[in-house]
């Protein structure tokens, strides 16, 4: 089976440190005020002293049926053979219809390059044999990255073992990014 890159984010392990938020921006040159990847703060919720608080790292879900790709008028957005949704900078006109269509708010407009930008699982780093920076830098060790089509891969195994879920599953976009509940 061909490679299908995906990720598991274990919210029990995420410590909301925001290392991935900043790392993503530095390594992917995301302008200020925009977030291709960010850790949402959920809480503190509840009444003193019974409180809950967790972080929700959210970036592109690398959907199998991606609404953003469907709406792209120039075919700049496309699913690469390994399942990662890529934007061809040379084709993107910056109409931002994909940003309207993405249910996860995972796409941003890059004012400097005048095109839309999104998570590529750090395409350039992978080319150099490195992990996506969010995976490498994750302080809580919450992110697992690998081939979802390889049942032996840690990411596939853990998705199964930990009963991982997708965000907004009812939209049936079939994300390649999975979560364990906090």
């Amino acid at each position: 089976m061909p490679e299908r890159l995906g990720m598991l984010i274990d919210l029990k392990k995420c410590i909301s440190c925001q290392a991935c938020t900043v790392a993503c921006k530095v390594h992917n040159k995301v302008p200020l005020g925009r977030f291709v990847n960010r850790v949402l703060k959920v809480g503190p919720e509840g009444n003193f002293p019974h409180l809950g608080y967790y972080g929700l790292p959210a970036a592109c879900m690398q959907c199998t049926d991606p609404p953003c790709v469907d709406v792209c008028p120039t075919k700049a957005s496309a699913i690469a053979p390994n399942g990662v949704i890529m934007i061809d900078d040379k084709k993107c006109v910056g109409c931002r219809y994909c940003m309207a269509a993405c249910p996860y708010g995972a796409r941003v407009f890059n004012e400097e390059r005048r095109v839309v930008q999104k998570c590529t699982f750090c395409f350039e780093r992978r080319e150099r044999g490195r992990q996506p920076i969010c995976v490498q830098t994750c302080v809580g060790g919450a992110r697992y990255f690998g081939d979802l089509n390889d049942p032996q891969a840690e990411v596939s195994r853990l998705i199964h073992e930990r009963h991982a879920e997708n965000l907004l599953p009812d939209l049936n976009t079939q994300p390649g990014v999975f979560y364990c509940r906090p």
Partner: peptide, 16 residues
Amino acid sequence: LLDPNNQGRLCAKGQA
């Protein structure tokens, strides 16, 4: 990656 303490990780402050 070779540093025994952080082993490739770096916090938000370091990244910035």
